[in-house]
């Protein structure tokens, strides 16, 4: 599978990544090469094999329903690019 420029742009948008116009063809080549490597998977028949999402077959351990966290807004927001009145700010979203 090779990825053409428009597909690269589509994926870049899906992942919210701006990419310089002049870099698109490099990405297109590199990503196509990677997919070429990835497609060597097709050499093996996996019919009847179940996919595994985790290496160990463990099941979830659940947490008791208790409030354990305290307000740390001030500390957390020290890392925030822009805040006002305790809110994180982003350019106005038009709905």
């Amino acid at each position: 599978m090779s990825l053409d420029k428009s597909e690269v742009q589509k994926i870049a948008w899906l992942a919210r990544l701006s990419i310089d116009e002049q870099d698109i063809s490099t990405y297109s080549d590199e990503l196509s090469n990677i997919l070429g490597l990835v497609e060597t998977m097709n050499s093996v028949d996996t019919d009847g094999i179940s996919p595994i999402a985790h290496p160990l077959d463990l099941t979830a351990r659940l947490r008791a329903d208790a409030v354990t966290e305290v307000n740390q807004r001030e500390q957390f927001q020290k890392n925030a690019p822009l805040t006002d009145n305790g809110c994180y700010l982003v350019p106005k979203v038009i709905e």
Binding site: D65, E69, N71, Q72, R73, G86, C87
Partner: peptide, 30 residues
């Protein structure tokens, strides 16, 4: 383990996990 109470001051009930800080992990409430 952050509280779910309604009507608190903005972001005072959003802990590291709720904020999705780098490295934090979810643990399911029973």
């Amino acid at each position: 383990g952050a509280a779910t109470a309604y009507g608190a001051e903005p972001n005072t009930q959003a802990c590291a996990v709720d904020l999705g800080l780098p490295g934090v992990l979810p643990v399911l409430n029973e």
